[in-house]
Design a protein around this nucleic acid. Structure first.
Length: 878
DNA sequence: CAAATCACGTA
DNA sequence: CGTACGTGATTTGC
């Protein structure tokens, strides 16, 4: 049926944005849903073939031998169909060495033995017609997969002239070209049916073969072997030993979350709607009608005592519940806070809160009562502005959704409510009349209440989803504690020197103008040097320079290509352009940072905790994780980040080569582990092994080559990429890789295993169980697949490093608190922390930071930590 | 006016 | 034809 669906729908019209073809999936599932809607089965199963070898091919090696290989767009769709079936909670069966038809025949037989009223078989294989009885009907696709013909005993007889049980005899005589089973030449369905009727079956036909006259009779006698073989092969097994029995096949509610997941990946929208329209789902959210029955208390915020009463009813005593919190979007100047359990909501207008209520609220927010929020870090910041402190957040729906689907960069509350609760809590839902009831009060209040109710309910759903994936620990022990730390880091910020920024800016600004003038002079015209389009015209049309690497819209003008062109042409425009690029970039960075300086003289970045697919943090507004660190001028920018007033010094502490150490640990490669244990310079050590020379004879070139190699490995570098990076021939790069893997075979084996396992399970895992799903690993688009493979190589390594530094941050924060130190963390830059050290605390902080960084994870190699000190980030850096 | 493209900074 | 990010200027497309 899947194959039929493949040919019924145009393959080019069904593909995801990543290039995965989905026409067979769509056609198959569409057909299946229609079937379920019309037939309403009590039990259901789908059977698949496994591979091409079965007991039949061993019996007769040419069986199905003339079949063309399936088109390349087809095979990758089969696992996708199975994923959808899993989400729909429909069992699918496959047994090595047997065909799907045998499974179908066995189940049908069991069902009839159990006196089921009716059995329906949907199959595109005519061999199943032998299974038709008074209770069993075959639905055979006639036009694509949209029209199914019902083969009852009468219908079989009408069409083929034999009763269903005799159909295989007819097929044996006629043969089946698609299975490469020749029958009797000259005998078609009409003759075969006539003989079967006349002699009462194949056995008798064979016994009385001599009596059959004419050409056809002779042909039959010459081909009896074919017929016997055909009959043997087209007999379906009805007594297979299946792992499941009929009670396992009872129809079940669909797994709502899984359906969303798989249909998101497949980019199916109409089918998703059809599924939810027709099938019951497990986590059925109260629908709109039921919502009206919720005890939906919306307090009049002017009344004193409502909050206290609400908290007493829901947050106190033995059956205290989690309180979900939602703050309005801040678009207007009113700030409203909604509190909710799964059934009760209360909305407060903060500015209008009576003093008594305000005190109750403040005590509740900062008190021990457990709370749930969506993006609690933002909420904390906003509540802090209003003078409240938010504590005891024990669940965050944003973080939970991120742990479950780290690749989805967006998981807003509205998205989550739609996906997990099938509920629209968008702020315009009320206005657009989608809500079932309309309170007299403001629609915003209604929306906030609904959102808070949704958060409360999402916690239950997401807690289950986290548990299913073994992610609960990461939530409670890692991400939530890290969230609180980031909150403080963001609030603290890092001090910057306005003077340094101003001086830098003026210098760079002059440089920019000079470089621009030089560039204009070199080409005799003024163009926009920041416009790749205009640059292309000048370089490749006016100056007719050799073409560089292609981009989507033309030829690249990136720094590497421009340097290349400069070597070839020595044109002064290129030098001026490169200088201009460099200066303008730095000037822009300085300007961004200068304007990000807050009234307290510090820059307060925002750390994104739910964005990077590997588990890393990212930094925005401004990004303090990409401050220049290499060039001299870049480093001057770091001079502007300084120790704040009242503090003694900045401290940076970083892990050296943490990703390579994780690679050593995960791969268990003996050579690599030894390299780190020896404490030798890693790249010299590896170079000595790869080039087979004593360690003190490793040249600078050897060292830089193995260094590029080592790092490239963790990212899935190809020999092509390596050759380009090192400026050597592909063959030489290939040889280098081979030598490397000869010496460090454990690394090669590990990398292979990682990809293989990810392809099997659908996800990679860090040392601490953080997952990343990579559905593209089975894509039939090579570019997509290769990209997913490289991501699979990198994710466990980059992700484990991210986990480790998060663990270290928690331990450091704990220690600072425990020892009542005033020193504090300011920034995290993936493998580095920046701290501000309070007077007199240097020694103790350095000791505890070293201890907790190095001790964050127990690897089979040491975690090396280095510490730097200084009045600015530049001097504290390494 | 928003999205896409290009370029480039970090680990 | 290594991974993971964020920002800004220009261009494209509606």
């Amino acid at each position: 049926m899947a194959f039929r669906a493949f040919y019924a729908l145009p393959v080019d019209n069904f593909a995801t944005s990543t290039g995965q073809h989905t026409n067979a999936v769509h056609g198959f599932i569409s057909m299946l849903l229609k079937l379920i809607a019309e037939e309403k089965p009590s039990h259901i199963a789908v059977a698949f073939d496994v591979g091409s070898e079965t007991f039949r091919t061993r019996e007769y090696s040419e069986y199905k031998g003339t079949r063309d290989k399936a088109p390349e767009e087809f095979p990758s769709q089969i696992p996708l169909i199975k994923e959808v079936l899993d989400a729909l909670r429909i069992r699918h069966l496959e047994v090595p060495d047997f065909e799907a038809d045998d499974i179908v025949a066995t189940l049908k037989t069991e069902a009839e033995d159990e006196s089921f009223d009716e059995v329906l078989i949907c199959s595109g294989d005519r061999d199943t017609l032998q299974l038709v009885t008074e209770t069993t009907t075959v639905l055979y696709p006639t036009k694509g997969v949209s029209v199914l013909t019902r083969f009852t005993p009468q219908a079989v007889e009408d069409k083929y002239g034999v009763p269903p049980a005799r159909y295989p005899e007819l097929a044996a005589l006629v043969g089946e070209t698609s299975d490469n089973l020749p029958g009797v030449p000259g005998v078609g369905p009409k003759t075969a049916a006539k003989w079967i009727a006349q002699y009462d079956g194949l056995t008798n036909i064979i016994a009385r073969a001599d009596e059959i006259g004419g050409k056809a009779g002779q042909s039959f006698r010459d081909n009896i072997d074919n017929v016997l073989r055909n009959r043997k092969l087209n007999h379906l097994l009805t007594d297979m030993d299946l792992a499941v029995s009929l009670p396992d096949l009872v129809t079940e509610p669909v797994n709502r979350e899984a359906v969303h997941g798989v249909f998101d990946a497949l980019e199916f929208t109409t089918l998703r709607e059809r599924v939810f329209a027709m099938l019951p789902a497990d986590s059925a959210a109260p629908d709109q009608d039921e919502s009206t029955e919720l005890s939906f208390d919306i307090a009049s915020w002017a009344d004193d005592g409502d909050l206290a009463a609400f908290l007493q009813a829901h947050a106190d005593g033995e059956d205290a519940q989690r309180i979900a919190l939602v703050l309005d979007d801040g678009a207007t100047d009113v700030e409203r806070l909604a509190l909710a359990t799964r059934t009760h909501a209360l909305v407060l207008e903060l500015a209008a809160l009576p003093a008594g209520e305000d005190a109750v609220l403040a005590a509740f927010l900062s008190g021990p009562a457990p709370k749930t929020a969506h993006d609690a870090k933002s909420m904390w910041h906003r509540l802090t502005e209003r003078g409240y402190d938010l504590k005891s957040v024990v669940f965050d729906t944003d973080i939970a959704a991120y742990l479950i689907h780290p690749d989805q960069r967006r998981h807003t509350l509205v998205d989550l409510a739609q996906r997990y609760l099938d509920r629209d809590v968008a702020s315009d839902a009320a206005a657009s009349g989608q809500l079932a009831f309309d309170l007299e009060s403001d629609a915003t209040i209604d929306t906030l209440a609904r959102q808070a109710l949704a958060v409360a309910e999402l916690e239950v759903q997401l807690t289950g989803a986290l548990e299913d994936r073994g992610l609960s620990h990461l939530m409670t022990k890692l991400e939530l504690p890290v969230q609180r730390i980031l909150q403080d880091m963001e609030a603290t910020g890092i001090a910057v020197s306005e003077t340094v920024f101003n001086e830098l800016y003026d210098q760079l600004d002059a440089d920019v103008k000079q470089a621009a003038d030089d560039a204009y002079a070199a080409i005799g015209q003024e163009i926009n040097l920041s416009s790749p389009k205009q640059l292309q015209k000048v370089l490749f049309e006016d100056l007719d320079m050799p073409k560089t690497k292609r981009t989507k819209t033309g030829w690249t003008t990136d720094a590497e290509a421009l340097s290349d062109l400069f070597e070839k042409t020595a044109h002064p425009f290129l030098a001026a352009l490169l200088a201009h690029r460099d200066r303008i970039k730095l000037r822009q960075i300085v300007e961004t940072l200068r304007s990000a300086r807050a009234a307290d003289g510090r820059i307060h970045t925002t750390f994104q905790q739910t964005v990077a697919a590997t588990g890393r943090l990212s930094s925005t507004d401004p990004n303090l994780q990409n401050i220049p660190a290499r060039s001299e001028d870049g480093l001057r920018i770091r001079e502007a980040f300084v120790v704040g007033e009242g503090y003694e010094t900045l401290m940076t502490v970083d892990y050296s080569q943490i990703e390579m150490r994780i690679m050593a640990h995960l791969s268990q490669d003996a050579g690599l582990i030894e390299a780190f244990r020896e404490g030798e310079d890693l790249h010299n050590y590896v170079g000595a092994r790869v080039f087979d020379v004593p360690i003190d004879e490793v040249t600078a070139q050897m060292r830089s080559r193995v260094k590029a190699m080592s790092y490239g490995l963790a990212y899935g570098l190809s020999s092509f990429g390596l050759s380009r990076q090192l400026g050597i021939e592909v063959g030489e790069a290939k040889a280098l890789m081979d030598d490397y893997f000869d010496r460090f075979g454990g690394v090669r084996d590990y990398l292979r295993t990682v990809v293989e396992q990810a392809r099997r399970t659908g996800y990679t895992e860090t040392m601490f169980g953080r997952r990343r799903y990579l559905p593209d690993l089975t894509s039939d688009n090579r570019q997509r697949r290769d990209m997913a493979e490289r991501a699979a190589l990198n994710a466990p390594i980059q992700g484990s490093a991210a986990d480790i530094i998060k663990i270290a941050m928690i331990a450091i924060e704990d220690a600072l608190e425990r020892e009542k130190l005033d020193s504090r963390m300011l920034l995290q830059v993936h493998d580095e922390l920046v701290l501000e050290i309070a007077p007199g605390e240097l020694k103790r902080v350095e000791a505890l930071v070293r201890e907790h960084m190095a001790g964050a994870a127990k690897l089979d190699v040491p975690l090396d930590v280095s510490v730097g000190l200084g009045p600015s980030w530049r001097e504290a850096g390494h």
